[in-house]
Amino acid sequence: MTGAARQLSGRFVRHIRRDPDVVRVIGVDTRSPAYPLGGAEFVRADIRQPSIVAVLAEYAVDTVVHLDVHGTPATAGGGRAAVKELNVLGTLQLLGACQKVPGLRSVVVKSSTQIYGTAVREPAVADEAAPPKAPAGGGFAQDVAEIEGYLRGFARRCPDVRVTVLRFAHVLGPAADSRLAAYFKLPVLPTVLGYDPRLQFVHEDDVLDVLSRAVRDGRAGLGAGTFNVAGEGVLMLSQAARRIGRPTLPVVKALAPVLGSALGALGLGGASAEQIRSLVHGRVVRTERLREAMGGPLRYTTPETFADFAAVHGPGLLPPDVVTRAVDRIEEVLRRG
């Protein structure tokens, strides 16, 4: 498993260790894990280096779970270029190494629904079957598109290996460290004036469930293919902001990147220019395919996921119950007057 130093990966390792069919878990990352791996072995290796082949061969790995695909840098100092290098070159090297390992049966890769981009001329509800288009504007969405491109090539070259691509919506939950989680932790949420994107979230617990289903063989597993992973339902950005009680700051679209860069310079990572750009149109995905493979919907819907996140990281400056009470007070004053 790659990206073992990250919070979600650490949780997944501990989760999968409890599965009796899993004999051995090997976590790989360039840094030592910040979270306990619960009995799994850790190998310090860089997936961008060819030496990763030796790791795969030495442990006779049969399943590779590639979780080292991220929108944010692992350490505070890392910039966008480092993220892109790890995402794209890391995946390229890793897949090259996978090709050389004879006993490999399955590759599971964490992808993102951001691959669908947020273009206006796209359908409102995105489908896995839609032909992949390179999202304009670069950034994380482009990384994901390139990664999936490599995966298609890999699947063609190694037809015996089961390739499962999981396109996760924004991961939220009490401990999530996704890009959108950082955004919703800001005291005031910058939004784009005149736009209100539709958002979908997936709960971190559901991420673990889906991943552990994906690594299984046979009927208990998901099987090969691409799956959208998102909680049922939709929240609008304005609605989510109100539910978590954080005021929004609408910015004219043309000025949004400037504001994003300014906030970035101040060290507020949650509102990069790319982040704000992705909050213009929003994207909703169809999840029928996953629901069928899993035999039911995910445990948390989008609103429930957000409520769970808000319970830990909220409420902000304008808690919904305070607002409601303020309205009650207005009513009282009006009635008396």
């Binding site: 339902g233 939709v234 109100r242 919904p320």
Partner: peptide, 17 residues
Amino acid sequence: VRRRLSGDYEVDDFGYD
């Protein structure tokens, strides 16, 4: 107003409120 300000409403996949 109370429902709007506390976000206590639902939208569908297409954003229909």
